[in-house]
Write a protein that binds this DNA or RNA. Sequence first.
DNA 1: CTGAAAGCGCTTACAG
DNA 2: CTGAAAGCGCTTACAG
Lengths: 343, 343
Amino acid sequence: MISLNNIAEICGVSLGTVSKAIGGKPGVGEATRRRILTVAQQHNYRPNRLVHSIQRGRSMMIGVACNRFDDEFAGGMVTGIFETLFEANYDAMVIYWDRSVQKGVHVLNSLAERRVDGILMFPPASYPEGSYLDDLRSFPNPIIVLDQAWPGCEYDFIGSQDIEGALLATEHLIELGHRSIAHLGCRHTSTGEDRMKGFQKAMMRHGIAIHEKWVRDAWEPPFEDAYKIAREILEQPERPSAIMTFNDMVALQTMAAAHDLGLRVPTDLSVTGFGDLSIATPVRPQITTVKQDPEEIGRRAAQRLIERIEAKSEDQPRPKLIQDRLPTRLVVRQSTAPCQSAQ
Amino acid sequence: MISLNNIAEICGVSLGTVSKAIGGKPGVGEATRRRILTVAQQHNYRPNRLVHSIQRGRSMMIGVACNRFDDEFAGGMVTGIFETLFEANYDAMVIYWDRSVQKGVHVLNSLAERRVDGILMFPPASYPEGSYLDDLRSFPNPIIVLDQAWPGCEYDFIGSQDIEGALLATEHLIELGHRSIAHLGCRHTSTGEDRMKGFQKAMMRHGIAIHEKWVRDAWEPPFEDAYKIAREILEQPERPSAIMTFNDMVALQTMAAAHDLGLRVPTDLSVTGFGDLSIATPVRPQITTVKQDPEEIGRRAAQRLIERIEAKSEDQPRPKLIQDRLPTRLVVRQSTAPCQSAQ
DNA sequence: CTGAAAGCGCTTACAG
DNA sequence: CTGAAAGCGCTTACAG
């Protein structure tokens, strides 16, 4: 790719003049400018932004540390992130720190070495720990954590009101007369833990006993194990009349298990999801779920990160740590109904 | 962030010595080296890879131009891409050129200005054209196109055997005795066009007439309009006994429409999907579909791109344009069954 | 073993 | 209006 130096040679002028001409700076004769611009265009000159990054000490690049790309919810957040970054003129460098990549490799280094101005981080399924946390701490620029937090997380966090959402879903079931309610969760993630807490809170509030054998966990997308677990729960002689699940995919697996056991949803079993993913509506019965707003989470996280970056470069007082949790909303559809065996 | 120059000052040695010490190059005294390394570690020195990019004329960065992130299939390809790039020590810069971002903005420029060594491109829903194609042509490094091609596409392409896959699905329906077969496609995309061709080919091969009114198109993920279109088709007095659809989401919408009209799948209506997304199995009935391998597409595309990049820098003869289409496979599940009204 | 210098591609005061 | 020079953070021959 042609450089300013090359153009200078071609035009028989100095580097500085070319720089000014192309940068639209004053102090270049009209004829010279035109000549330079023509040559630049002919050779398809593009300014080298890597150089600018070095000179300004600001790369205008954000690091996005992703976990998985085949997940609609994560995808929604990423969409929001990119919209916001684009508007603010930031580019994005993406890394993938799945188990396959992780293997002890310190992927964060590449972000630091490329001098990203900040990091938007989707925590890996297992919370970061040890030398890995050290990596994070030694990163000099702002970090924002999305969706999943971990105990003692020292960074700004943007996510959903998971506890409240789970509470809504559970209370919805309780209001329908259900008392034998199972929870098929995902407690090794922080959202899973919170949703479990919301479940517990609702049950306690209404003085309903929680059966430990009905509190189980699915592993990870696409949550195929949820099918087996749901079956186990539903095959028992004493079975719940409702299952509150971690998310819509788990709900779907649960509904499949019920179906295969000859149980009708919602007549024989009510099921709630979480997330309001795009499968929640085309499926029959449509899934009663808790709506989240992944794109808005992404947008806010990106905005927040940019604020931090700008505050830092302007030497403003370091803003206080925030925890921003977007509201969730119950969407009642077809997978829940009044309890048949209600008193 | 601390620089080599800073370390040199602190240690009272020259820049070059520090560079050698940290780079593990010979020609530095053991004591000096140790002193330098200690200071570097204390201050958390990280080499500035932007500088290397400039010096070597190779950024070791790949541009990934994405369309949407909330799509499982695209996500699978991206996963494969990242796996491969990571192994080959490339980083990735991602841009998002959805309709919202596009708006005439030439997003490709940022890729060129950041000097990415190559581009992995998911074409936007509407084929690139005009000045947009000029942008592509003026990009000096290799470009590989994934999944969707457009007429006259001048780049290496990696995708699926869409025509063959659609042929498999359609012939499966024909073998089951179906003769009144509708196609709910997505012809404004190249995969949609190909799947339609496969459908036509199968029908022609077996001498079955195609009813134009039964060949319709859905728009884009999450394909909510497919529900309405499927209903329109199924509400007619004369309705098909099977619908071959563009993908699993469209199949799901079609099944929902059938369900809401009191039609049982597969007894009254057979439906095929495409893609074998993760919803295909937990749904009841499970979707008969055509399996693709998005991750492998991603991996091959990334490999191919890296080959091209390396070939280029080694001044090898420019490799010939390739079109690599991965095989597809029919997966028969529960959404298809012998035609009831078969002769 | 150590340092001074050129160079990668640029911008920006500062001279002429 | 134009150019020479310093500097961003590095690497790499080349002197000492």
